[in-house]
């Protein structure tokens, strides 16, 4: 048995910031890339792109429906548009346009939502996005991703630009611990095994990946062998990684900063049911809206920290068939 992988989880930039920097780099390499924003460019970090490429940046004001549909029009005319806003506004307010102008004709539009989940903190539930992954996954043909840190965000934004078809990427507001340190290949639809383990698998994405690693460290002290998967792509889901997790560890805990309903976990559960049924537990928001508070207070109150993942692992191990 090789030594268990250790992660230092040093402080890193927010995934939205990684997105902003990645866009500039992609913009330098591909003149077809254009960016659309709805009066949030300083928050979504598309302002970096706007500064370097003012002619390829389009301000739409506070009008997400129009922004998404115009991005589709640009895609039909050969551009690679990135449309960005808070996840709550880009997807919810632009949903009808994502449906008819983007998904239905399979337009080559990339929507990047920032300020996803409840970790935006003090602004409260109207700005928080806990439904958008479910909505985006319901659109036929969409690729939906939720990267965990700087390196994976940069790589997956790049992969989205190279991919031909509609993509939604969910990024966050708070600083995200560094998980990857170069040399790793990221592919759309390919989960990454961060920690090897044989008793149980934690499948996480976004900021829950770091919590899953912390949970696995704590459980390792107790002699529980935990596998951790970064399921950065929610759709299409990595069927083989899920099947193997179910078959080889016999118990799965999913963890995401999103409503459990319609989120990554239930999509994993569907695959598990179709391939290799096993005991499962789901960490996520439970049929409620959050409130104002510090991000760490909210994550604690709504059950989205390592402690909650550990508890879910204990529950699932109690139900696991031996």
């Amino acid at each position: 048995m090789p030594a268990r992988t250790k992660y230092e989880l040093k402080p890193g930039p927010a995934t939205r910031e990684a997105f902003g920097h990645a866009l500039v780099q992609i913009g330098r390499e591909n003149p077809a890339v254009v960016v659309c924003d709805a009066d949030l460019s300083k928050s979504t970090m598309t302002a970096f792109f706007a500064k370097e490429f003012p002619d390829r940046f389009f301000s739409y004001g506070i009008a997400e429906a129009n922004m998404v549909a115009q991005a589709a029009g640009m895609a039909y005319a050969g551009k690679v548009p990135f449309a960005s806003s808070f996840s709550a506004f880009a997807v919810n307010k632009g949903f009808e346009q994502l449906r008819v102008c983007v998904a239905y004709p399979r337009a080559n539009v990339k929507v990047v939502g920032t300020h996803s989940g409840i970790s935006i903190g003090e602004d409260g539930p109207s700005q928080m996005s806990v439904e958008e992954t479910s909505l985006a996954c319901s659109l036929p043909g969409f690729v939906v991703m939720a990267p965990a840190d700087e390196a994976s965000t940069k790589a997956l934004v790049r992969a989205a630009a190279a991919y031909r078809g509609p993509v939604f990427i969910r990024t966050g507001r708070p600083k995200a611990p560094l998980i990857y340190n170069g040399g790793r290949r990221f592919e759309i639809g390919k989960a990454i095994e961060l920690v090897e383990g044989s008793d149980v698998t934690i499948i996480a994405n976004g900021l829950m990946v770091a919590e899953a690693i912390r949970a696995s460290d704590a459980l390792d002290q107790e002699g529980v062998s935990v596998r951790v998967l970064d399921m950065h792509t929610v759709k299409p889901l990595d069927r083989e990684a899920v099947r193997r997790a179910a078959a080889e560890t016999g118990a799965i805990v999913t963890a995401e900063e999103h409503m459990v309903d319609g989120g990554m976990g239930v999509r994993v559960a569907q695959l598990v049911a179709e391939t290799q049924p096993c005991a499962m537990e789901f960490i996520g928001i439970r049929d409620t809206y959050a409130e104002s508070g510090k991000p760490e207070e909210l994550l604690d109150k709504y059950g989205l920290i390592a402690r909650d993942v550990v508890a879910a692992v204990r529950r699932v191990l109690g139900r696991k068939r031996h």
Binding site: G73, M74, A77, G78, K79
Partner: peptide, 14 residues
Amino acid sequence: LSLGLGMGLADRLD
């Protein structure tokens, strides 16, 4: 009209 304006902007850029 949004679609058309997006196309118009792309045409102008190119």
